[in-house]
C-alpha cells in the first residue's frame, strides 16, 4: 500500500506536491478543473507588507522550453490578504501557505508576524530570491549574511513551519542553504527563477519591460536538480524541489536527488491539473518499485 503522506517540519501533507507561488494564484483560480484540496500544499502569490503594483507590461516572454517573467510581486499587501483573501481560502482542506517577500528585514518581519496570527495558514515560504524587485528580494538570498539575517529575524516572530525559498543566481547555493538552516529555517525550497533575458532581433528591443527577468519551465530543470543534489549534501532540513517539473517522472528525479517534496510551477499554465496528475504518477512509480512511501526514494540516487 502506497501512502503519499509527507511531513515537512510540522507541516503534514496529503502528498508531497505543492503548487509554486505566483503560478497558482490563490488556488481558487484552478478550482474549476479539479478538487484543489487534494494537492498537498498551495503556496499563494507573493505577499508583501504594502501594496505593490508590480512592473509594467510586458511581463512575460516565451523562450525555448520555458518562459521569462518580471511580474514584480504585484499584490495588495498583507493587510488586504488578511482581511479579504484569507477568509475565502482558509476553509480549503489543504495546506494554504503564504509566500512572503519584502524590501527590508523589517518588512519581512512585520508581514510574517501578521501571517503568524492566521490559524489556517500552517507555514510561510520566505522569498529571499525574487529577481524582479529592485530592493530586497534576491538581495537577501545571494549572500550568506543577508540570508542568515532575514531568516533569523523572521524566526523570532514566526513559530510555525518556516520554509525559505532560495535563489539559483548564486555561486554556492549549498552555503546559502547552510546559513538559513543555521538561522532556524525548517525547510528550504529551490530553485526560484534563473535570471535571464530575451530580445526581439527585428525590433532590437528587449521582450520584457525590465529587460531581465526570471526563467522557469523545463529548460531550468537540470540546473534545479543539480542544486537540490548539492543542497541535500549540505543540510539536514528537508528540501522542497522545484524547477521545470512537468510530470511525475520529473518529480521522481527531484526525490532521488534529495528533495522530500516538490512544487509544480510553470506547468500549471500548460495543464492546470498537473499537480494531481503528478500525484497519481508518483503513486504508480512507488507501486512499481515496491515502495510504500516517498521517503524511501528521497536521496536514493545510486552513484558509483
Amino acid at each position: 500500500m502506497v501512502d503519499l503522506k509527507t511531513k515537512i517540519g510540522n507541516l503534514v501533507m496529503k502528498n508531497p506536491i505543492m503548487t509554486a507561488s505566483g503560478t497558482f494564484g490563490y488556488g481558487t483560480e484552478y478550482a474549476d478543473f479539479m478538487d484543489i484540496s487534494q494537492i498537498g500544499g498551495i503556496i499563494v502569490k507573493g505577499t508583501t507588507l504594502n501594496h505593490r503594483e508590480g512592473n509594467p507590461y510586458p511581463r512575460m516572454a516565451e523562450t525555448p522550453s520555458g518562459m521569462l517573467n518580471c511580474v514584480g510581486l504585484q499584490n495588495k499587501g498583507v493587510d488586504y490578504f488578511v482581511e479579504h483573501i484569507y477568509p475565502t481560502i482558509k476553509d480549503i482542506d489543504t495546506n494554504m501557505i503564504v509566500n512572503v517577500s519584502g524590501a527590508c528585514i523589517e518588512d519581512y518581519v512585520a508581514t510574517a508576524a501578521k501571517i503568524n496570527a492566521l490559524k489556517e495558514i500552517p507555514a510561510i515560504e520566505l522569498n529571499i530570491s525574487c529577481p524582479n524587485v529592485k530592493q530586497g528580494g534576491m538581495a537577501f538570498g545571494t549572500t550568506c549574511e543577508g540570508a542568515h539575517a532575514v531568516v533569523e529575524a523572521v524566526r523570532k516572530v514566526y513559530d510555525k513551519t518556516l520554509i525559505v525559498k532560495l535563489s539559483p543566481n548564486v555561486t554556492d547555493i549549498a552555503a546559502i542553504a547552510r546559513s538559513v538552516e543555521e538561522a532556524g529555517a525548517d525547510a528550504v525550497s529551490l530553485i526560484n527563477t534563473l535570471m535571464g533575458m530575451a530580445i526581439d532581433a527585428e525590433k532590437q528591443v528587449p521582450l520584457l519591460s525590465t529587460i531581465t527577468g526570471g526563467l522557469s519551465g523545463p529548460c531550468v530543470k537540470p540546473v534545479a536538480l543539480r542544486m537540490v543534489w548539492q543542497v541535500s549534501k549540505a543540510v539536514s532540513i528537508p528540501i522542497i524541489g522545484l524547477g521545470g517539473i512537468m510530470n511525475a517522472t520529473d518529480a521522481i528525479e527531484f526525490f532521488l536527488a534529495g528533495a522530500s517534496a516538490i512544487q509544480i510551477g510553470t506547468a500549471n499554465f500548460i495543464d492546470p491539473t498537473t499537480a494531481l496528475k503528478v500525484a497519481d504518477g508518483i503513486k504508480n512509480y512507488l507501486e512499481r518499485h515496491g515502495c510504500s512511501s516517498v521517503s524511501e526514494i528521497v536521496g536514493a540516487l545510486k552513484v558509483g
Binding site: 483560480e29 502569490k45 510586458p58 512575460m60 504585484q74
Partner: peptide, 22 residues
Amino acid sequence: ENKMACGLGACLCCVTETSVGH
C-alpha cells in the same frame, strides 16, 4: 490582447493599466 501565460488570472503577466491599477 496582451501576451498571456495562464489565462486564468493567476500569473499576473498580461496586465494592462486601468484607472484602478494593473
